[in-house]
Nucleic acid binder design. Structure first.
Length: 907
RNA sequence: GGGCGAUUAGCUCAGUUGGUUAGAGCGUCUGCUUUACACGCAGAAUGUCCGGGGUUCGAGUCCCUGAUCGCCCACCA
């Protein structure tokens, strides 16, 4: 293929990527079909919120899934990556509600049906965005299988799961204090409450004693962080053994402002050392107070509305005020009445609603719950038995802790966007029916009218079914059976650790409970991506990278590479946009390496199309044997790293192989070979060698591209398309991943060739270093002397070594007059510096080096003279130390010889 | 209050079961339009491996302890 048009430097990904991403999908390269054999490899995507935007965390976890899927696809497995989106009940409802409010429309006035219409409109406007972004990222999902958690089939699955649990007695309705989000005006689960430390106050308020005993106190001082709830106080509590308040127990005190009389009770819940040792008890607005209230039969007094404003149980002046306005007003009034003793600053932990971003209220209401203990046991058994593996391993401790102390799951939400709870109450006899379809007639009285529950289910009570519901569960038709057989259970889940309880644990429970199978074999928790200062990415900080811009500026491959390359299992990533440079430079590097190979192939009339990895032939040549050995090692590392989900090991090995090995050394070694063959009087042997090496290079490069493809799909595809004409109906993504066993059975890797090449590199490096030491111009051809005895060893590489080091090699034992000397891999290297360097400065340099060597030798010899080391350490370590000693001795001897020679020359 | 993780070059981080003279990328410095690539090539400099103890012939690695940062869990109003 000729180097025209689309093969310019530098590599410009923005020219290709978008088109390529669409082309892959159009040609159906990612489509999967259930097969009757067992080659399936399935991953289900963690469905992003339907109205969400792609953020860098998505890039990370979807890139990792894509790497696994593309890797397995290259290995010839029938891969299926199921994409989709989550309806995200509370998050979406909040967005739609806000949008309506901005337009002056009140959600409740609009009514349920109209609201849902609006929500679907919103979904159709924004729901495609994140899917589009994932496609742009190159995610090789089977896009024909996209599922939305409110699709009709999925809805059926959610209802069926609920009904099944109900029939099994695992669903109940409970009347208790719940976490209430005043913004969404719905209950939320414990997991949706985020504890945050906040600076608050501890107000000391005086409660007058109703009938003080003579000489006794006339008031008690109560400490509280939430004064506005005092309208709901039903008692004041002290510790039963607190000597200060013995006389008060059983008396009555007057709640300030509302002037209600409440008893002083004794309960061990009270900490004597905290505050004043006197606590106001507000059973309807605090979990602990609720418990205390239960113990003392205090009853309940709710003083708030669902939006956290004060209700009719508060004094008229406070009714309708928001809780914080009420607090201010009350504190002021207490001060005026002289009942506020003091105000202390106080740090406390406040429960914040994950979606509403405001402190939650404890609120008394009736809600639906799932019984979790049995389900939690199912999940625990899977990790304890080792059938389910969590990475990083320490997450298993978190898992154990949560599941061990699990509480029942409050699944009802006072929302409209979601799966409405399938419970129907007969309007005549009040019999409760739970069924997927509304019953035709009441089982008890035959009446035909029902009222369905108003509430919808927690989002996670639908997404916990994801791995099997996407395949059609619980339907039992032929297609569903076939799909369940092929694609369930899946392999692995890749996601953030933040949803370990929300989603991962519950999927395991649901999988075991409803299908009897563990839904995946492993879970990989990705690192959290933070900004360069270690702060969480957040909208309010505006520190999230603009991914569209990054992809346009550096390329998607660059983004993928740079992100993956920074992964450390179990640790956060500190992200800088500039780190994309590494990936961009890498993509450019291999792009240009291709330009080099192809231009020479053209010159030598070699068809790159014929040089596929399948046609790899290894010429009988030290350079080829060496590169092949390196490649085999890279392949082994890549396979092992990906199997163990060590993604950064995989990325850095490929980087090293392609750049440091293939480009820096192999291509450079190839150049003099090609140059020799290009001479007019080139020998037949040199022509043959050039052609063989070039063909070998192209074939091996094809293999290396495949190894890199899962990580950098775009640039590898662009290159692969240019290696042969007429590939547009194919993709590199469906070629074969090199098979290590077959490969090494055909050609044996040769460790000696690697050692041999290291010697060549050592000599070249030594000359370069000496050149650098004196800043000698690279164009200056140096005279280099190697010992006569090494002639055979380096014979075939002389031309290459001369080219790489910019020198002329001579094999002789006489030293140059002014000489830069080095010892590398047992070879003495002498660079003739006569006329370039002043002898005195080289003498000085040699003396310095000798000093260093002396120091090192002292250390080694001390170790070697230690009897315990010699007898105690493994043989290889002792041998290593001895080798080190002799090497340093040899270098010392060499330098002394050089020194002597130069000093005698200099007079 | 419990549990977990981190601390290695100016910055971001590697460093397998303890074993040569601790590495990479970026940045810095030097020299290069060497005909694939300046998004490049060649070379160089830079470390109290957080502090303090201990185990060991040998510790960045294991143990104890202290400090700092971060995360998770927990009902002190």
């Amino acid at each position: 293929m000729s180097l025209s048009g689309a093969f310019e430097k530098p590599y410009d990904p923005s020219e290709f990527e978008e088109k390529r991403a669409q082309d892959w999908i159009d040609k159906g390269f990612f489509a999967s079909q259930p097969k009757s054999d067992t080659t399936h490899y399935t991953i289900v995507i963690p469905p992003p919120n339907v109205t969400g935007d792609l953020h860098i965390g998505h890039v990370l976890n979807n890139t990792l899934q894509d790497i696994l899927i593309r890797w397995q696809r290259l290995k010839g497995r029938e891969t299926c990556w199921v994409p989709g989106t989550d309806h995200a009940s509370i998050a979406t409802e909040a967005k739609v509600t806000k949008k309506l409010a901005d337009e002056g429309i009140n959600k409740r006035e609009l009514g349920r049906e109209k609201f849902l219409e609006e929500a679907y409109k919103w979904k159709s406007n924004y729901g495609g965005r994140i899917i589009g972004a994932l496609k742009r990222l190159g995610a090789s999902c089977d896009w024909d299988r996209e599922v939305f958690t409110m699709d009709p089939d999925y809805h059926q699955a959610v209802l069926q799961a609920f009904v099944t649990l109900y029939d099994q007695g695992l669903v109940y309705k409970g009347h208790r204090l719940v976490n209430w989000c005043p913004v969404s005006q719905s209950v939320i689960s414990d997991e949706e409450v985020i504890s945050e430390e906040r600076q608050g106050h501890l107000w000391h308020i005086s409660y007058p004693v109703v009938s003080p005993t003579p000489g006794g106190p006339t008031a008690v001082e109560v400490a509280t962080t939430r004064p506005e709830t005092l309208f709901g106080d039903l008692a004041v509590a002290v510790h039963p053994e607190d000597e200060r308040y013995q006389g008060l127990i059983g008396q009555k005190v007057r709640v300030p402002v509302c002037d209600r009389e409440v008893p002083v009770i004794a309960d061990t819940y009270v900490e004597r050392d905290f505050g004043t040792g006197v606590v106001k008890i507000t059973p309807a607005h605090d979990m602990n107070d609720y418990e205390v209230g239960q113990r003392h039969n205090l009853g309940l007094l709710n003083v708030m509305n669902p939006d956290a404003s004060l209700n009719e149980n508060s004094p008229p002046a406070y009714q309708g005020l928001d809780r914080y306005e009420a607090r201010q007003k009350l504190v002021k009034e207490l001060k005026e009445r002289g009942l506020l003793v003091k105000t202390d600053n106080h740090k406390m932990v406040v429960g914040i609603s994950e979606r509403g971003h405001v402190p939650i209220e404890f609120y008394l209401s009736e809600q639906w719950y799932f019984k979790m203990e049995g389900l939690a046991q199912l999940a625990l058994e899977e990790t304890r038995s080792g059938r389910l593996r969590l990475l990083p391993a320490f997450t298993e401790k978190i898992w154990e802790h949560w599941l061990g102390g699990i509480k029942d799951w409050c699944v009802s939400r006072q929302l409209w966007w979601g799966h409405r709870i399938p419970v129907y109450t007969c309007t005549s006899c009040s019999k409760v029916h739970c069924a997927v379809e509304a019953p035709a007639a009441c089982e008890a009285c035959g009446h035909v009218e029902f009222e369905q529950e108003e509430d919808v289910l927690d989002t996670w009570a639908s997404s916990w079914l994801w791995p099997f519901a996407v395949q059609g569960w619980p339907k039992n038709d032929a297609q569903t059976q076939k799909q369940m057989e092929a694609y369930y259970p899946t392999e692995t889940i890749v996601t953030g650790q933040d949803i370990i309880f929300f989603w991962i644990a519950r999927m395991v429970m649901a999988g075991k409970h409803f299908t009897g199978k563990l839904p995946f074999k492993s879970v990989y928790f990705t690192p959290i991506v933070r900004d360069s200062k270690g702060r969480k990415m957040s909208k309010s900080l505006g520190n999230s990278p603009d991914l569209q811009k990054l992809m346009a500026e550096y390329g998607t491959d660059a983004l993928r590479f740079s992100l993956v390359n920074q992964i450390v299992l179990g640790q956060d990533i500190h992200w800088k946009n500039e780190s994309c440079e590494m990936g961009r430079n890498f993509a450019n590097k291999i792009w240009n390496a291709t330009r080099f190979l192809l231009s020479h192939a053209e010159k030598r009339n070699i068809s790159s199309a014929k040089c596929t990895f399948e046609s790899l032939k290894i010429p009988n040549d030290a350079v080829a044997t060496w590169l092949f050995s390196e490649f085999c090692q890279t392949l082994e590392t890549a396979d092992k790293a990906l199997s163990g989900m060590n993604f950064a090991t995989y990325s850095s090995k490929l980087y090293e192989h392609l750049w440091m090995v293939f480009c820096d050394w192999f291509v450079e070694l190839l150049k003099p070979v090609l140059a020799e063959a290009a001479e007019t009087n080139a020998s037949v042997a040199s022509l043959k060698r050039a052609d063989e090496l070039l063909q070998f290079a192209l074939s091996l490069f094809d293999g290396a591209l495949r190894l890199l493809h899962p990580l950098m799909p775009f640039v590898t595809e662009e290159i692969w398309q240019r290696l042969a004409e007429g590939r547009s109906s194919q993709t590199i993504g469906r070629q074969l991943w090199p098979n290590a066993k077959e490969l090494t059975a055909r050609y044996e890797p040769d460790p000696a060739s690697v050692a041999h090449m290291r010697a060549v590199q050592g000599v070249v490096g030594a000359v370069r270093a000496i050149r650098g030491q004196y800043s000698l111009h690279p164009g200056l051809r140096l005279r280099v002397v190697l010992p006569e005895a090494s002639r055979d060893r380096f014979g075939e590489h002389v031309a290459a070594m001369e080219y790489l080091s910019g020198s002329q090699l001579h094999f002789e034992d006489a030293l140059p007059q002014v000489v830069g000397a080095a010892l590398t891999q047992g070879t003495e290297v002498f660079v003739d510096l006569e006329g370039h360097v002043d002898a005195a400065s080289e003498v000085k340099s040699v003396k310095q080096r000798l000093q260093k060597i002396e120091q090192v030798l002292v250390g080694i010899q001390k170790k070697l003279s230690n009897e315990k080391f010699v007898s105690g350490a493994p043989e290889s370590v002792v041998a290593g130390a001895r080798a080190q000693e002799s090497e340093n001795l040899a270098e010392k001897k060499l330098l002394n010889r050089v020194l002597e020679s130069m000093q005698s020359q200099g007079g």
